[in-house]
Amino acid sequence: MASFLKLFIMIMFTNNNFEFYNTTISGTTADDTAYGMFMCRGDTPSDLCGECVQNATLTLSNKDCNSSIEGLIWYDQCMVRYSNTYFFSKLAKEPFKEYVSPTKQIYQGTFNRTLFETLNKTAEEAAKAPIGKMKFATEEADLPVFQKLYCLAQCTPDLSIQDCRSCLNLSINGNIPRCCAGREGARVLYPNCMIRFELYPFYGSQLQHQQV
């Protein structure tokens, strides 16, 4: 897959869409065909998107990964995935990653109710876009003691409305109660979707170069 990943970088930089892109590169046999995709977070400027995708692809091309027939990497501002199996427009429920705020503060009651209400509202907004359109949304909610909750949801544009909502629902009502409810912040990442919440603004003008 090393040669595919190098070619993928070249194709990415000749592509004018710096939000989402997928491509198929055929080999000499069906077994040599490779499928690749990248998606940037919906609020990421084109220059940061291109830099993130390039860094992610180069990481996948290193000696530890370049012999693998499939790979997936998440950065804060993008994700890159490749495989020798066709995966476009297909909902994948694994692998997934959960990242939880290191704070030990646990919130209960009103916080959790507001969290799940806001995450589900964000998911509904992201999922309603038709296939091929950006499925990205953010929402804010007021919390006690002059705090705010910031939420983000996104799916890959190749998913149907139903599959996008299903992916986000799995994150919100499956992963979050188990790993992250009551925490000050968390991220849940799937191959087709992601959610994140924090008690500080992390999207839009708050972009930073981070690897998750």
Rank of each mutant, 00 (worst) to 15 (best):
1 M>W: 11
2 A>S: 11
2 A>F: 09
4 F>R: 02
11 I>G: 14
12 M>I: 08
15 N>E: 02
17 N>M: 05
20 F>C: 02
22 N>L: 05
23 T>Q: 11
30 A>Q: 10
32 D>M: 05
35 Y>E: 07
39 M>I: 15
39 M>L: 15
40 C>Q: 04
41 R>T: 04
41 R>V: 03
45 P>S: 09
46 S>P: 11
48 L>Q: 03
48 L>V: 02
49 C>L: 11
55 N>E: 15
55 N>G: 13
57 T>I: 08
66 N>Y: 02
66 N>T: 11
67 S>H: 15
67 S>G: 15
69 I>N: 14
70 E>I: 09
72 L>T: 05
75 Y>G: 01
75 Y>H: 04
76 D>C: 15
79 M>H: 06
80 V>F: 08
82 Y>M: 13
85 T>H: 12
87 F>I: 12
89 S>L: 12
89 S>H: 10
91 L>R: 02
93 K>M: 11
96 F>W: 03
96 F>M: 04
96 F>Y: 10
97 K>T: 12
98 E>R: 08
98 E>Q: 15
103 T>C: 09
103 T>F: 05
104 K>C: 15
109 G>S: 06
111 F>D: 02
111 F>I: 03
114 T>R: 03
116 F>V: 01
118 T>E: 04
119 L>S: 01
119 L>A: 01
121 K>R: 08
125 E>Y: 06
128 K>S: 05
128 K>N: 09
129 A>P: 14
131 I>Q: 12
136 F>M: 05
137 A>M: 00
138 T>S: 01
138 T>Y: 00
150 Y>R: 00
150 Y>N: 00
153 A>N: 01
157 P>A: 12
159 L>I: 02
159 L>R: 02
160 S>A: 11
161 I>S: 09
165 R>C: 13
166 S>T: 09
173 N>D: 10
174 G>D: 11
177 P>D: 01
178 R>Q: 15
178 R>K: 12
180 C>N: 04
188 V>G: 06
188 V>Q: 06
192 N>H: 04
193 C>N: 01
194 M>H: 06
199 L>G: 00
199 L>N: 00
200 Y>F: 08
200 Y>C: 01
208 Q>G: 07
210 Q>W: 06
211 Q>M: 13
